[in-house]
Design a protein around this nucleic acid. Structure first.
Lengths: 178, 178
DNA sequence: GTAATCTGCTTCGAATTCGAAGCACAGCGA
DNA sequence: TCGCTGTGCTTCGAATTCGAAGCAGATTAC
């Protein structure tokens, strides 16, 4: 079954979208809006609590949770971040003594990133408050069944998108023959 | 019922979090990761299709959907964006002829923003492809019931967070008595 | 073996983002 | 009315972000 959804603008123009479920636009807009609001609050907390940006926090937690060392590319793909941006952030984190970078023994090109004890300590200090904020903003209005559904749904969506080739696999610009 | 969730780091340290539902962390991480992936893909599409950034697209759609004119602050709060950043983007969009700014008759301080026919046309041109991308990445792996749940859940979460005072209501720095 | 290509990371320049500070009007109380 | 505080927006400087280009080691084709 396919239903039509209409977008009517004040200019008088109407766009008719056919989508399998008329609830899709609403779900999508609510999703992005809620996540934006949540991220903004989380950023405030991390900044005041641990002097960290959201990206830096994500990098550190990824590293802390990783069983071994991660390469720059793995880290960048993990947090959905540009590789040049990661170079910049890794520089900051290394200067702050929170991570270490050293060349991989297997591949001379690769850089292995490790979290330092200081970095781990920072994560441990900030994480409880972080989870509290998320708890208060995201989960407070949800039932256990809701949480279950949400986790199930988003895991499926994430895996679906992860099955597409990652960011680092994007075709690189061909060098101009000259 | 309260259960414990453990975060065990490779450093050997273990953080024990008590949260009402052990599924919360997983749901949260899957949520943010999926949305990051989605946003990245959407950005690529908007850039190649309409030469728009995600923020610009959001601003234009908000304006197109708005029944009347919006003030800068309303617009900034709507898309969860800093006000100085909005000034910058509004400048770009105005220069491109996609929106109009003019002082409000009611309040001399306020600026009313309107979308131009050209801006509306751009939205109309880009929106179908945008929805297709979202459809393919977000909804393809979901059932109708999932979409229903997701919309319901995220609407509740959004409203919960919107009930907190908005970004523009943040206490402003007191002027130092000089 | 080696030339051609690929891949991992960094450097570079341009664009975007934010918060703090500033300006101008609004709204209030005495 | 006058002064004081609050609000809407912009300007400003600093920090962050990205993609394109560059460098060096790895891999492939022949």
């Amino acid at each position: 079954m396919t239903l039509a959804t209409c977008f009517e603008f004040e200019t008088g123009t109407v766009i008719v979208m056919t989508s399998p479920d008329p609830r899709q636009p609403g779900a999508y807009f609510a999703l992005t809006e809620a996540v934006s609001l949540l991220q903004h609050q989380v950023e405030q907390h991390l900044r005041t609590e641990g002097d960290l940006s959201y990206v830096q926090f994500q990098l550190l937690t990824r590293l802390a949770a990783a069983d071994g060392r991660l390469t720059m590319t793995e880290l960048a793909d993990g947090v959905v971040y540009s590789r040049s941006g990661l170079t910049y952030q890794a520089g900051l984190l290394e200067k702050a003594g929170l991570i270490t970078r050293r060349p991989s023994p297997d591949d001379e090109r690769a850089t292995l990133v490790t979290i330092t004890p200081k970095g781990a300590a920072l994560v441990e200090r900030v994480l409880p408050g972080h989870i509290q904020v998320v708890q208060r903003l995201l989960f407070e209005s949800l039932s256990d069944a809701d949480v279950h559904h949400l986790g199930d749904i988003m895991t499926r969506v994430r895996d679906h998108m992860r099955s597409q080739p990652p960011r680092s696999a994007a075709p690189r610009k061909r060098r101009t023959a000259g």
